[in-house]
Write a protein that binds this DNA or RNA. Structure first.
Length: 584
RNA sequence: GCGCCCGUAGCUCAGCCGGAUAGAGCACUUGAUUCCUAAUCAAGGGGUCGCAGGUUCGAGUCCUGCCGGGCGCGCCA
């Protein structure tokens, strides 16, 4: 049960009762009424704003409405106390039995607790990573990869039919540069002295084995031939090799995609022409000349008449060109075709996860999706801000000019995929992220991965100890769901139960807002409440989880621990992180 | 010059669809270890929510204008 949804239903029912009784006018719009856990514990278990948001419609003072509502709610068995507070909040306190019943419910449900069919099988397309196939992934890519993957997991968990996609930009000038770079390494592998890698080509060592592999496959046949002869072959070979690298990197991070969509294939299949024709048919393409960007010095600018997409009709700041002067498509044109492809495959909910450097591209892509779907599809773009890599507080030098990026693989090898994944989700996607290689492996309170994992490990430890006192079969969550929980009466125990019961609300909120980081924060709160309780057991033996003298109480406490373990494990699973059983 | 994102405690950051006395960790001070992992926990001080207006019962949250930082601005992707 989502306690807050349940209470909202109860309150809506009581408001309707008040309307029927004539206390309130009929036909009130209850859309703005909400029930939430209050920030202040002193305000009870749940707070409702109904009286405040209905006051205007009902032409009544908030406190009057609140008093009427409170009088009705007091009659309900599961509600221990109702108070009207502040400007007209209705604060509810639920009975301990109510909370204990929710704990039993959690245990009976097990791993799926909080999973609600919000999506009703609605298809959602999540596109993430989509790094150019010109080299291995670096740490910046990791953030988008993890955010996209976790978001996809979350949506899937909540009943959406998710497809995970990677757009392979294998059609532009960059892959031609890649091909030339590989050709240089190929000549090197064939025994030619190539000296320094020429300016403008990719100098990375990772292309050496690609050149060697090409030489091994094709021998010397591409050596003394003009570029136009070898470029397509070498390019195809190189792209395949780069995508193998990328897939290996993603695999190391535990990130997977359902579909890799090739830009080159999209062009080859004529899908870009189709998209262009469709926009043209809707009168959204015209010949025109763009204004040069103001204030940006650009000596090469010359006015040029070209085909423009009327993006301004859909909220963009400028109309956008679709063809380069050499007649080939712009990146935007092929991306329009790709998004049209998604819509035609039945998706009307599109999510793209991009790096911060693409922020200026959001409006035009949203405009394009509106245009090509007849306003029927929506695009949500999650922009991931920079990852600032530190080592013990000092920045790790990452110079784009020198081509010195820290590779995703190096970081995963050093701290492990679970640490990378969790840390990447401890910030909102649109806030910059500090990633300190030293700190994230420390075993201390300020390392959130450790803190949450330690809570899980402690829970496992107590359950192992518990099995020495009571039969192991009795510790299965389904069995614990049926026991007497009435000995859970300490404030810290009930506080932990309440926080566990917020899980369905957290999941639903994170899903609808497309914000997986909320889960990371909730897991840290749960871990905190649990560590507190654990330490209280040091002072007060009655709160110890395992007590051989009192098997019944032990069972009740282990039920609480088992529920915590279920929720933490579930949250970590959504993040693609393995919960640890022990830390030694 | 224009667009997007950000600005909350000394530092790193939460803050849900506009709700009550703005929260957490770190750092600092003090305290807790026979006993389920003290790898933890408790207490204390610390704020003009960048600035100024506006909207309303109520603004960190919405609107406008400034200030500061990041990203980007036709034939790169």
């Amino acid at each position: 049960m989502n306690v807050f949804s349940y209470l909202l239903g109860v309150i809506q029912g009581e408001i309707e009762n008040l309307s029927s009784a004539g206390t309130l006018p009929a036909g009130l719009d209850l859309g703005a009424v909400s029930v939430e856990p209050p920030r202040e514990a002193a305000h009870g278990d749940a707070a409702c704003n109904a009286a405040l948001v209905l006051a205007r419609q009902a032409r009544r003072k908030p406190r009057e409405i609140a008093d009427s509502l409170a009088a009705r709610l007091e009659e309900r068995a599961e509600i221990r106390a109702v108070e009207v507070a502040g400007p007209g909040f209705v604060n509810l306190r639920l009975t301990d039995d109510f909370w204990r019943a929710r704990l039993a419910e959690l245990l009976a449900t097990g791993a799926g607790y909080g999973a609600e069919n919000l999506g009703q099988g609605r298809p959602v397309n999540v596109e993430y990573v989509s790094a150019n196939p010109t080299g291995p992934l670096h740490v910046g890519h990791a953030r988008g990869a993890v955010v996209g993957d976790a978001l996809a997991n979350l949506l899937q968990h909540m009943g959406f039919a998710v497809t995970r996609e990677y757009y392979v930009n294998d059609a532009g000038a960059q892959v031609d540069t890649l091909a030339r770079s590989v050709h240089a390494r190929y000549r090197e592998a064939c025994g030619e002295a190539i000296g320094a890698i020429p300016e403008g080509l990719y100098p990375g060592d990772y292309l050496v084995p690609v050149g060697e592999a090409l030489a091994a496959r094709d021998g010397r046949r591409w050596l003394d031939r003009p570029e136009e002869d070898w470029l397509p072959e070498v390019r195809a070979f190189a792209i395949e090799a780069m995508m193998d690298l990328v897939r290996a990197d993603l695999d190391a991070l535990g990130v997977r995609h359902d579909l890799f969509r090739s830009e080159r294939a999209l062009v080859g299949e004529g899908r870009v022409d189709d998209a262009y024709a469709a926009l043209e048919a809707d009168g959204l393409i015209y010949r025109g000349v763009l204004e040069p960007p103001k204030g940006k010095r650009d000596v090469d600018w010359e006015p040029r008449e070209q085909s423009l997409f009327r993006a301004t009709a859909f909220g963009d700041d400028s109309d956008r060109p679709l063809r380069k002067s050499d007649g080939t498509w712009t990146y935007f044109a092929t991306d329009i075709a790709y998004h049209r492809d998604k819509v035609e495959r039945g998706f009307s909910d599109l999510i793209d996860v991009w790096g911060a450097d693409h922020g200026g591209y959001v409006k035009r892509m949203k405009a394009a999706v509106s245009a090509l779907s007849g306003e029927g599809a929506t695009l949500d773009v999650k922009i991931c801000q920079m990852v600032k890599l530190l080592d013990g507080g000092t920045p790790v030098a990452m110079s784009k000019r020198a081509g010195r990026f820290v590779m995703l693989r190096e970081v995963v090898d050093e701290v492990g995929k679970d640490v990378v994944r969790f840390i990447m989700l401890t910030r909102r996607n649109d806030a910059p992220l500090e990633f300190d290689l030293r700190r994230v492996t420390e075993q201390s309170r300020d390392n959130p991965v450790f803190y949450v994992q330690y809570a899980h490990a402690r829970a496992c430890s107590a359950l192992r100890r518990g099995a020495e006192v009571v039969p192991e079969a009795a510790l299965a969550p389904a069995a614990l769901a049926g026991i007497d929980l009435s000995s859970l009466e300490d404030a810290a125990e009930l506080d932990l139960i309440r926080r566990l019961c917020q899980w369905p609300k957290v999941l639903a909120g994170a899903t609808l807002a497309h914000e997986p980081h909320r889960i990371a924060f909730h897991l840290q709160e749960l871990a905190g409440a649990f560590h507190l309780l654990w330490t209280r057991g040091k002072d007060d033996p009655r709160l110890r989880f395992v007590d051989a003298e009192r098997p019944a109480k032990t069972l009740a406490r282990l039920a609480l621990i088992s529920a915590l373990k279920i929720v933490i494990a579930e949250g970590l699973a959504l993040f693609g992180v393995e919960p640890v059983q022990e830390m030694r």
